[in-house]
Design a protein around this nucleic acid. Structure first.
Lengths: 162, 162
DNA sequence: GATGAAACTTACGTCCA
DNA sequence: TGGACGTAAGTTTCATC
């Protein structure tokens, strides 16, 4: 991957509806090679897919809650089931295993506090958890699906071309 | 918005490359009305855009760090500048104002701990912060851009049709 | 890599029920 | 609203240099 690939990715991360011809123009390439680069990055799995992003307010999920979970180090089997059960809730949009004092961290989206309470009850009914603590976000100041591309590993062989 | 709109959104949240004709088939509609519904939801801002999602490992940003920030309740002006400065870092992919003991929460993506340390130094060089604590994610068990649609407000007038 | 063109697939507007 | 049809535009795959 070289600088041109990075440019392509940067643009596609912003807006994937761009026509390949327009994209090529912006990158300084003609359509065919630009198209081939995109194909390759899709095959290589660099591009995982193209999705529509919705407005959280419009679909009534404007409240984000971060849920910190502490478990009593259970069996591998329990942990597997725990991950499965929690991950199946569509309200859980992010789910991390953490280092440090918290074992797991969830980002949950719901319409309001009442809905969060209902979600919480459904969750703990399905799986026993030692300690749960919830932190409510008052405002989402930034949310982007655009990963920084500054850390991308650039092929030295290719980077000499430009 | 009715159940058909919800079906359309559900599919587009998964994969926005679907042709309108295929989408229409899955939803049980012909292409024109399906296309019109999509247009309307784009105009209404329900659909915010279509983007490419990249593989964090492939672009070398596999490490997520949650950064909890406590401030000494500063002036409005300071808070505005703080938000601006922090939000400008491309490594900061999510940024929330919280209720409770933590004032702000960031999700930061970097290649490794060393890169996080470098990011941290650059951030505190730009703006003074009272208290910062970092929690590292060991594993991303779930990450989705798909918002749950179960809370969507359905037009009663329309819902009688089906 | 660039260019150009062919074949095919979509998107999108018009018209009618 | 939804369905049918047509055109313009896009995508994808060829050649060529």
């Amino acid at each position: 991957m070289d600088r041109l690939d990075r440019k392509i990715l940067r643009l596609l991360q912003e807006d994937s509806t761009l026509a390949v011809a327009d994209l090529a123009k912006k990158v300084g390439l003609s359509t065919t090679p630009c198209w081939r680069r995109i194909q390759k990055m899709e095959e290589d799995g660099v591009i995982r897919g193209r999705v529509a992003l919705l407005d959280p307010v419009k679909v009534n999920t404007k409240v984000t809650v971060f849920v910190s979970i502490r478990t009593n180090t259970h069996s591998i089997e329990w942990l597997r089931r725990f991950s499965e059960v929690v991950g199946e809730f569509p309200e859980v949009v992010e789910f991390y295993r953490m280092s440090g004092d918290v074992d797991y961290l969830l980002r949950v989206v719901v319409p309001d506090i009442a809905a969060y309470d209902a979600f919480y009850k459904r969750m703990i009914a399905k799986i026993e958890i030692r300690d749960v603590s919830s932190a409510f976000a008052m405002e989402q100041i930034k949310y982007t699906t655009q990963l920084p591309l500054d850390y991308m590993v650039i092929d030295q062989a290719k980077s000499n071309e430009e």
